[in-house]
Structure formats: C-alpha cells, structure tokens
Amino acid sequence: MPEDKIIEVKKIKKVCRDKTILDIDQFSVLKNKFNFIIGGNGSGKTSLLNILSLVDQDYQGELFYKGRLVKKDQQNLELRRKLSVIWQDPYLYRGNVFYNIALPLKLRDIDQEIINKKVKEIASRLEITDLLEQSAHTLSGGERQKTSIARALISDPEILFVDEATTNLDEESIQFFNSHFADLVTDEMTVVMVSHDRRQIKQLADQITLLKAGEVEITKAINNFNFELFGAGIESPIAELV
C-alpha cells in the first residue's frame, strides 16, 4: 500500500435489517489530507464514517490501517486512541464543559496538571473558556458543538472524523466553524469529513468521494475533478465550489 494511504477498506459491506446500506469495493483515506465524503440522504456516508473510525466493527470486508489489517474481533484500543470523531449531534456527558473536554485524556490516564493545561488551551482557541464550569446540558447548539470539537481535538488525534458538524448549527456558529476549523487542525492530522457545506469543500477539500446508494460513485482529488459527474446529494452544480 502506498505511503499516502492511511486507511484503506476493501470489499466492505454493511447490511442492516436485510438491506445493504454500504457496498464498497475499495476506498482510501489519504494521509495528512482533507478527505471529504459527500452524497444524498441514505447514501451511506455516516455508515462509512462509523466503519472508518472503528465505531462500527460489525461489517463484512477488510479495513487496513497503514497497510495492516485491523481485526474486528478485538478492542483495537491502541488504534482507536489515535482517532477522534466530531458528531453532527454531539452527546455530552453529565457534568460541566471542563469534564466533557477532559474525558478523552482521563480515559488515557493523563496527569491532571497536563489535562488542566490542555483543556484551558483548547477552550481558549474555541472561545469557550467562560463555559468551562457550566453544566453541559445547559449549552446552546453552537456551544455544544464547540465543546465536542474541543473534546475531539484535545487528544491530538492522528485522524479526525467529522460527521456533518455544522448541519444543525445557526449561521453564526457555521461561520465560526468555517473560519477556525482549518487552524485547529494540525499539518500532521488526517481529516475525514462528511459535509454538504460547499464553503467547507471549496476551502478545505483535497479529495472528494461521492457515495450513491451505498456505493462509491467517484473519488477524485479536488483539482482534477470532473464536475459534470458530480451532483447527487448537492443541489447546486459542483462548479460553484471552485
């Protein structure tokens, strides 16, 4: 496997209640790139993201991390701790914002002083320092998403998965996300994004994959993409993106 593929899946099939929701022959995630997955409702974007992020290990087929087969019957804890996910509708645990952001580091038994320092640092970058002591259940949609972004980034993941992070947000929060997200991601990070936001795709995408009815319709780098072929799941022609 070439060096630039950090994750590759082969002959992946996901069946749910006798219905095939994902059937992909081959798909790769490029290392240190922004990999976008797009497609219409029910095209299998989130299902694919769940498999790539090891959140779902109940599927047929093979997943390789840096060329090494990832066994589905194991916890894969070491690998999972290199990954992070930002969800469309994030789940925040009982407790305050600080607790939620610190959780991934607590799970890794990181020293409390380091946790305190890192939480303050990431909260400052996301402009939520004032919310750290606030109960997570009292936050607005935008504040919840910022908290979940901070939680996903605090462990410095090697691969960051983003599942339609801005779909449920107001315009102000979307603008904050779009203007800050690229700065929050380091050069060493690989990003896999499910998104419909044309601004995000235009600004960030290195590779775009279009899913249709659970299958990969096309995967291309953004600068030589055949826009004519691209349209499902996106209302406007893809030409508007560039």
Partner: peptide, 18 residues
C-alpha cells in the same frame, strides 16, 4: 439511554471497562 453515549465513548478511546 441514548445510543450516542456508546458511540461517543468508543470514539473517545474508551476501553470496555471504561
């Protein structure tokens, strides 16, 4: 309980006991 609780825990790198 919300199914997202388990998905989030998995995505945060929690072990089975965690």
């Amino acid at each position: 309980m919300d199914e997202k609780l388990y998905k989030t825990a998995t995505s945060m790198g929690a072990s089975r006991s965690q």
